[in-house]
Design a protein around this nucleic acid. Structure first.
Lengths: 345, 345
DNA sequence: CTGTGTAAAGCAAACGGTTCCATAAGGAGG
DNA sequence: CCTCCTTATGGAACCGTTTGCTTTACACAG
């Protein structure tokens, strides 16, 4: 059978309480006893039963990641994988285990979260999305459970969240194109209900306005975070009478679609159309030409989210009400897709 | 406070045991009582405490995924994300939670596994690799813990594993190139201690021998499952006096590296070098040109692994000793990177 | 009317820890 | 020499479930 704290106690000739105290490094245990007990634990191959521990301590030392349902779509996976990698690495450094969960729909998601949290299987939750209205967030808030959002929430001001400054990031991306000499710049956005889409669009607008550049309505196209959206946007743009010489795309996948389309039509990048996009996924540097991209530090995003969550689990009172939004820095990686000044031969 | 089984019992005017039995659908509970209790549970928002349940039932309804130690790098490979997706989907269908874990080195991995299993935090483990000698496997076997290997183990015959027929897969890949008219075919392998590397190499050899084609030693290069390996292999191959006209790469990531290198040197794919690789990760069709790849059903691999593990947890005795190796079918996806017959103009 | 069988529910002992409170043994101070 | 304090340890209740064993309450046969 498995060896329990009582077995160790008996063999060491002490009481279970003493063994427990040795385990937790209680100060009032003599060095001698402590050493003796530790030797015996080692000898007997004792490992504490986490369930029993959790039962009394009401703490599990584990957290849970909720994947959004469109994570099922293969494309976004590279992004999520990086995020998870950051979370798992940091969690395990803090001695926490990570549980991953996802539901087929929002109702299932809510059920899972509720079961895990109310059933005391995890101490907190990381949400890998920022939807506009969300039953899961409502549940977490009203239940007072520790959780953090990767992404920004506009509805709830006091929620812990880890995010980029996407407005600034888009501003930087656009500005880069402007500084290369572009004046007619298009924008391919994502779904309008995602906050990230809107933030990036806003950054683009700001940059254009700032330089007093014209923004035709037709230069802004909505799509998904998918290749196809880029493909369609491209063919739309290229048929415009006074078409853009450059574009900002909300996601690298979109750029790939644009690239594919331009390639089919024998257009050249960046000569016929310069491109900058977001996320800097590993493939961005592998396309031809390599794509300029805003690196948003995905791994770092996950790492920080875990850190913030665990901190909030351990000292729930430490929340000062100010620093509840953590912003991960971004940086522009300039590659071939944007290295061209229009009009130049 | 959280509502317990006792609270429900009191409010319903029954004993805790009765509530427990209602919960588990015990036969000797009157329909009337059952209904009454269920209403009250609903009213009070009762959720069973998993820790308490686990403590007595010695079962956690969760499993654990162990990521290989170079997870930091390999993680970036979409392969693992797909695998995890399959595992999580199937597990949640079976009512199991999934914990993901990894260590900085083999010792840490072993510690984590031991802590989780002996500490009764998980019921079983899925190993996402198949190394040659492995302390973790030794531990799992000697402890009699339920586990399954994604990949093949040559050392332990009776281990549950889910795998592809990698020998056949490589045979097919190579044969495809041969049937396109190639005769000088190179092979970029992975780390030699991974069984998958060796199996694929063997399949390549078989195909070459079968057609009586020459296999120069210098046409076989060892590397990692990373882009860089492809990059290096490429530059090595292209400098060979009588260089290969095609190559088989052990992983799609390797192909990306090859592609990048060839692109830099202004070589054309597939005209100057045709490529086929393995895994068919979602990005394979997005590169330019799209890469021919052996689809090994990664998602399916994960899905099956979870199924097999959970089955073995639930009926440990059901193991017949025969069907302990599950083989997931593969299929060749031909794309542009291999659609060229050498010598043709 | 008593004995027996059966369905429904209760009691209490686990499961493996933690922790408050009590206790015993010294040592210091008066 | 007695009291009081400190330090090291033991005892026991408790965390929220499950489950084997009783008990209760009838119904029915003898």
């Amino acid at each position: 059978m498995t060896v329990t704290i009582k077995d160790v106690a008996k063999k060491a000739g002490v009481s279970p309480s003493t063994v427990s105290r040795v385990l937790s490094g209680h100060p009032r245990i003599s060095l001698e006893t402590s050493r003796k007990v530790k030797v015996i634990m080692e000898e007997m191959g004792y490992t504490p039963n986490m369930m029993a521990k959790s039962l009394v301590s009401k703490t599990t030392n584990s957290i849970c990641i909720i994947l959004p349902k469109p994570a099922e779509e293969l494309f976004s996976n590279l992004f999520f994988m990086e995020l998870i990698r950051g979370i798992v690495t940091q969690s395990s450094r803090s001695g926490y285990d990570v549980l991953i969960s996802s539901g087929a729909n929002e109702k299932e998601e809510l059920e899972a979260v509720s079961r895990l949290l109310k059933g005391r299987r995890v101490d907190g939750v990381i949400l890998l999305y920022s939807r506009k209205d969300d039953a899961v967030i409502d549940f977490l808030e009203s239940g007072g459970y520790p959780f953090v959002l990767v992404g920004r929430s506009d509805r709830y001001e006091d929620i812990l969240s880890v995010d980029n400054d996407n407005i600034m990031a888009a501003y930087d991306a656009t500005n880069h194109l402007i500084s290369m000499g572009h004046e007619r710049i298009g924008f391919v956005s994502g779904p309008p209900n995602l906050i990230v889409s809107r933030d990036r669009l806003e950054g683009y607008r700001k940059a254009m306005q700032n330089k007093g550049l014209e923004m035709k309505a037709e230069w802004i196209v909505e799509g998904e975070f998918l290749q196809d959206s880029g493909y369609r946007a491209m063919s739309f743009f290229m048929n415009l009478p006074n078409r853009p010489t450059a574009l900002v795309a909300v996601d690298d996948m979109v750029s790939f679609g644009v690239l594919r389309g331009l390639n089919e039509l024998k257009y050249k990048v960046p000569e016929d159309l310069a491109i900058v996009s977001f996320n800097n996924i590993p493939l961005s540097e592998l396309s031809s030409p390599p794509i300029s991209s805003i690196d948003i530090g995905i791994y770092h995003l996950g790492y920080t989210a875990s850190q913030v969550l665990i901190q909030s689990i351990q000292k729930p009172d430490n929340h000062d009400g100010y620093t509840n939004r953590f912003v991960i820095p971004h940086r522009l990686i300039v590659r071939e897709s944007s290295m061209y000044t229009p009009g130049k031969q």
